[in-house]
Nucleic acid binder design. Sequence first.
DNA 1: CTTAGGG
DNA 2: CCCTAAG
Length: 540
Amino acid sequence: MVLQRRLEYGFNGYQVPPTPRAPRSARKRVSSWKKNEDHNRMCAFDLLATVAGKLLLEVDDSVSKIDHEEIKIVNGSGSKPNVCDKGSCNKPFFVSEIIKAPDTDTCSGPASGITVSDCKIEDINQKQMQTGPPENGKLPFVNNVDCNLNLVIRDDDDDDDDDDENSFEGSRRDTLNKKTVRAPPCMRDRRIRRLSASKQWKISQNTDVYRNKINCCKYQRPLRDYPFKKRRLYQLDNPSKSDKSGFIEGGSSLDATSQDSHVKLKIKSFRVPEFFIEIPETATVSSLKRTVMEAVTAIFSGELHVGVMLQGKRIRDDNKTLSQTGICHDNELDALGFTLEPNELQVSPLLCPENQPLIRYSPAQTVANEVVIRQQADSPMTNSRNITVSHHEMSVDDKSGLDSRALVTVPANNTGELEVVPVRKLKGAEVAQRRIRRPFSVSEVEALVEAVEKIGTGRWRDVKLRAFDDANHRTYVDLKDKWKTLVHTARISPQQRRGEPVPQELLDRVLTAHGYWSHHQAKNQFKLNHQLEPQTCRLL
DNA sequence: CTTAGGG
DNA sequence: CCCTAAG
């Protein structure tokens, strides 16, 4: 089967089990695509087994005879998994209306949050793709797929252990408190951002969701150690407690302190964006089903964002409580809706000609936070309303409904340089901002070269402290990277060099120092004679 | 956190 | 510049 998508699309599935670490010198990193491939496949498979459960039971034996190579899913952009290509991003999957939840969960396990009870192809016709006629001229065209699934939102009643000490957030706090002396503010902020974008967290959360789903299907996954304790997505308390409480109870107030008020929701259906399936006429219906299932699975295996709509209006403020936003027991059943949006949806302004608001989620007392469909869990970092880029950079307001095209212009900083921080990427709950490019000036290069000549390569923190201590925007990683490019620059012909020309004299010194230190193991030599070495290096 | 190295 | 394994 040729799925024209990449399974790694936003979904990392399970964490790679810890493998013995090779010595640093032996580190050769495998491409992340390669690394994740099998895991993603596994995720897709698990999803298939889990989400499709019932459907697959209907697949008759003949499916095994189908040559999957004949099946091709044309998913919008072609190779990209972006399901919102070609403007369809303005049509997010539409999820659900509120309907009354059954007395018991559909799934037997206490952790169950989502089941698919039925899937059907709603509209298959012989329309041709708008993007061009298919080769055979007969292309089944799937407009949308409706699935039934249940989603139960529960309040946490017995939140007795919040794992705060061991939580990601807590550990980060500790780290920061301990290390503030060493890390300049800008670097600390960067680390916060890094951590907030850490896939470790996401993977953990993803796994959490799936493990729950797996449990629901009596499918055990081996336990793993996670770098951080996972924040529970929803409470695994005694189902009977919430069941007997009814779907909605308590007063109209549903704030954080009224723990006994419940809003139970059942997602009856969702709609996926338009996608295309090409399948030969000779294929069986079962293979068609499976193909469609694969496509749906592909969508579900990506990171999804949940949008909350109340009375047709999008609820943007994730920090409000349900009652504050008007979600309470006396809502009309269809007043509340959810949208599922693929993760990459908001990324490219080109693909989203109309302003697609960026939705971020707050972990506390929000609808979005509790929706277990989400595979992309919140990072605790998003708990704060603002993401502070750095002390002199711009704060991005959580509630501003950021446009993917937004460019946040910030005032000139101390050095007179203007910083423009594009909102580049939305990955789940985090907005990862790429720093603006700041080419090294010749004087900076000179300072770097001089520092490396004295300190050597391999101790970039010291290089930073020596020569760039006051340059908050230059991290030691930056210096290491710059040295790498300097070495490269020095080795290529002047015609191939780009950017502001670096004096040849400096480049010569780069090569000299590089050659010297690569033979002298900067780390070890430094301890012995860090004052003598520079002289030697210079003379070489 | 730092380092190292690939992307 | 980013990302992240390894230490």
